[in-house]
């Protein structure tokens, strides 16, 4: 027992050559437990990824043998005005949607975590929108944004009449199309809310009891206990939100396609068109790699900054 205890403490100091039994067991466990992911990664991740690097240097079109074209795809990419347009559209969308939806889902979870009556009902109401699938969501919101008989314009029509302005065309208007998407995305903050709520319920109650004894009010409790305890989840929400928003596709495809003046031509949509409409697999692969580089950069920066404000209870 005693020697075991010593080695448990010594895990981090031991040199690789003289591994303690526990450190050795750790390594074995680590690789065994991780093996499903490693095998899966090789089969469904790395293999296809390497293949797509190769593809991005070719003119492969599904029907021909891939010919090596060097950097041609990447060169074309920088000259393609629609790439810049779609990248701009996507960035605009990401910059608004990610912070707004993270803040929104956190606020909702905190609201629900108070001693509110009928929590299951509230929770289901807020979660409901995330259940609506890509296709159904696109179908529904296209209908909601309908300029003549849609829900939004029907509700706002007294306002429009008061100020004597025409019905906004939403998805048909180059300026309003993207805000319409942002609005639609905020409808589905319930998914993030569920995670925040799980985290809130995991916060030990005695922390709040102790704070109360020390005379901290609800506001101080929120900023000094709730927020730090939630910080890993906030980071999570930000990270996944960014990654997901950069890849907006299904709803956009159903709702407005490229939109007026390509206003809703999002990056992955353009990529899909290039790869599966024009069968330019090589060009599509190159586009995908550029997107990957951008998303990776944003995330690395986020994690670097996160070290300053994220608090992990379990980490030493």
């Amino acid at each position: 027992m005693k020697t075991n205890h010593k080695s448990a403490i010594g895990i981090r100091q031991s040199s690789p050559r003289h591994l303690s039994p526990m450190a050795r067991e750790d390594r074995l466990t680590f690789w065994c437990f991780l093996s499903p992911w490693i095998i899966g990664f090789v089969l469904f991740g790395a293999g296809p990824i390497i293949a797509s690097i190769f593809l991005s240097f070719t003119d492969y079109s599904l029907f021909n043998r891939p010919n090596w074209v060097g950097l041609d795809n990447y060169r074309e990419l920088f000259r393609d005005p629609l790439i810049w347009k779609s990248l701009g559209n996507t960035l605009f969308y990401v910059i608004f949607v990610v912070p707004l939806s993270t803040a929104g889902s956190c606020l909702l979870a905190v609201l629900l975590n108070q001693k509110v009556h009928g929590i299951p009902v509230w929770r289901t109401i807020f979660y409901l929108p995330t259940i609506v699938s890509g296709v159904a969501m696109g179908v529904l919101w296209r209908w909601i944004f309908n300029p003549e008989v849609g829900l939004i314009n029907t509700l706002l029509s007294p306002l429009f009449k008061l100020f004597a302005i025409d019905n906004p065309q939403w998805l048909l208007d180059p300026v309003l199309a993207k805000p319409a998407y942002i609005f639609m995305s905020l409808w589905a903050i319930g998914g993030g809310m569920i995670i925040f709520l799980a985290a809130l319920q995991g916060i030990p109650k005695d922390l709040y009891e102790a704070a109360e004894i020390d005379g901290a009010g609800p506001v101080r409790q929120f900023f000094n206990i709730t927020l730090p305890m939630l910080s890993p989840v906030i980071l999570f929400s930000f990270t996944m939100g960014t990654i997901g928003s950069f890849q907006i596709f299904a709803q956009a495809y159903v709702m407005s396609g490229r939109g007026p003046d390509n206003a809703t031509l999002f990056y992955v949509m353009y990529l899909f068109d290039q790869a599966f409409r024009y069968f330019r697999m090589g060009y599509g692969a190159a586009m995908a790699w550029v997107l990957f580089a951008i998303v990776l950069m944003v995330t690395v920066i986020k994690f670097k900054v996160a070290k300053r404000w994220v608090y992990y209870e379990g980490e030493v």
Partner: peptide, 15 residues
């Protein structure tokens, strides 16, 4: 592991 999420699904889709 995290980076694999960031890989747009389209990259691995064709292969």
């Amino acid at each position: 592991v995290l980076a694999t999420v960031m890989l747009p699904g389209v990259v691995t889709m064709i292969p």
